[in-house]
Simulated assay, not measured.
Amino acid sequence: MSTQDLGADTFESTVNEHEIVLVDFWAAWCGPCRQFAPVYERVSEAHPDIVFGKVDTEAEQSLSAAAGITSIPTLMAFKKGVLVFSQPGALPAPSLEQLVTAVRELDVDAAPAAAPSTTEERSA
């Protein structure tokens, strides 16, 4: 599945109705966002069972504020409706793949406060 645009009217239902949802908060004027976009798109195509959403922070300012976005790009990952990862900055493809693997393996029912380590993704 390729990426899909999310807005205030679809964000919550998307996060709650799918097993795993990754969300890229971005803006058209943001250079790192534009560099990350093709990486995010390629990884989304490799994982059709995961929802890869995108939130345009300019068009969705209220949603971005509610999500606590202070820097873009910011990537969030949800599993079973639980936020398990949130980090500003563009990830290289191998790190994004590591994140996907970590979220897949995470048992949110057994450890709802656990989240993938951001250190591991950065060191790749």
Rank of each mutant, 00 (worst) to 15 (best):
M1K: 14
S2K: 14
T3L: 01
Q4C: 12
D5E: 14
D5Q: 14
L6H: 03
D9M: 05
T10S: 14
E12H: 12
V15Q: 00
E17A: 13
E17K: 11
E17G: 10
H18V: 09
H18A: 11
H18W: 02
V21M: 05
L22S: 07
V23Q: 04
V23F: 00
A27P: 00
A28R: 10
A28Q: 11
W29M: 06
R34P: 01
F36E: 04
A37D: 01
A37F: 00
V39H: 00
E41D: 15
R42I: 02
R42H: 10
H47I: 04
D49A: 13
V51S: 08
E60K: 06
E60D: 06
E60S: 10
Q61C: 06
L63Y: 06
A67Q: 15
P73T: 08
T74S: 08
L75E: 01
L75A: 08
F78K: 07
K80A: 15
G81L: 05
G81K: 04
V82W: 03
V84Y: 03
F85C: 08
S86P: 04
Q87D: 12
G89M: 01
G89S: 02
L91Q: 04
A93P: 01
E97S: 13
T101V: 15
A102N: 07
E105D: 13
L106K: 02
D107P: 11
V108P: 12
V108C: 07
A111F: 12
P112R: 04
S123W: 07
S123Y: 06
A124D: 07
